[in-house]
């Protein structure tokens, strides 16, 4: 069953003297119960897409539906059944955790008790602080509270706009564990993030850049589509190594990735000769063949 369907959606904004295209020809479908990721940097158009799907904005062209309801015509129906956590969402800082929750519960004509099984896992983590004002919570806790608030009415589709931006690696990990957990309840989740490494945690992802979807696939499908052999290279002086490699004709791309540089060659070279080829260009300590990550794929797509 299709939970979200987007068909040729286009959106432009008028800026001073010019028209900015926020979204161009967006097409995709999300099945019920899927965890779908919109991966892309700030300004890729993720938030605009979310606002169109949550009926907060009208597209210039194209159509979209959520749970079978048209986002323009049936917006009232959609508003009853989606959960939404906007990007800059910061809850009511001057209300306590408990008050925030019950406010959002009543907003959707429900109560914490009614859907307790759904939010239980998350709520238990924030329950010790339920009398605390939301403004006094740490970043990770705020995200969890916001997620509980978005879930409290048992939405059939959950839209999370950059829930992990600015959150540390540990809290991010925990947050994604919570999302995977939610799939048991057959909730469709659409989540956006600028962190490429989070893509591998989704069922399927759309890589977005400049208002376009560059590719839609499962994380595995995307990384398998990386055509060229990819090599991780380490040297004594990493910065110098990068400059030398980037300047070389034989090297197609060289990007730093943590302690290694990820390198592709302009022309195909047999695996056995790679080490010696590299040695001709620069002094290298370690070379190994590696599978591509989502980030490699994203950068490759950006180059095209």
């Amino acid at each position: 069953m299709i939970a979200v369907k987007v068909n040729s959606v286009k959106k432009t904004f008028k800026a001073e003297k010019s028209v900015v295209t926020a979204l161009q020809q967006i097409n995709f479908e999300v099945s019920k119960g899927e965890l779908f990721g919109l991966i892309g940097p700030d300004g890729a158009g993720k938030t605009t897409l979310f606002r169109i799907l949550t009926t907060l904005m009208l597209a210039d062209e194209g159509a979209a539906s959520v749970d079978g309801f048209d986002v323009v015509r049936d917006y009232k129906e959609i508003r009853k059944r989606v959960g939404y956590m906007p990007g800059r969402f910061s809850l009511y800082q001057d209300l306590t955790v408990e008050e925030n929750l019950s406010f959002f519960a009543t907003l959707f004509n429900t109560s914490l008790e009614e859907n307790y099984d759904l939010v239980k896992a998350i709520y238990q983590q924030i329950e010790p602080f339920k009398k605390r004002r939301a403004g006094a919570l740490s970043g990770g806790m705020k995200q969890k509270l916001a997620l509980s608030c978005a879930l409290i009415h048992r939405p059939s589709v959950l839209f999370l706009d950059e829930p992990t931006t600015g959150v540390d690696a540990v809290s991010r990990k925990e947050f994604w564990e919570l999302l995977r957990d939610l799939q048991k309840h057959q909730i469709t989740i659409i989540v956006s993030t600028p962190y490429m490494d989070e893509a591998s945690l989704c069922d399927r992802v759309a890589l977005m850049q400049n208002g376009k979807i560059m590719e839609i696939n499962s994380p595995k499908g995307i990384t398998e589509n990386f055509k060229k052999p990819l090599w991780a290279v380490r040297g004594e002086n990493m910065y110098q190594l990068m400059q030398t490699l980037q300047a070389s004709e034989a090297i197609d791309s060289c990007y730093p990735f943590g302690q290694y540089h990820h390198v592709t060659f302009t022309h195909a070279i047999p695996d056995s000769q790679v080490a010696s080829e590299l040695a001709k260009i620069a002094s290298v300590v370690e070379v190994k063949r590696i599978p591509a990550t989502i980030e490699d794929c994203f950068m490759e797509l950006m180059r095209q």
Partner: peptide, 13 residues
């Protein structure tokens, strides 16, 4: 400003 209006609008209220 704090973004809660978006959530309120996307509710049946």
């Amino acid at each position: 400003e704090i973004g809660t209006m978006e959530v309120i609008l996307v509710s049946p209220m």
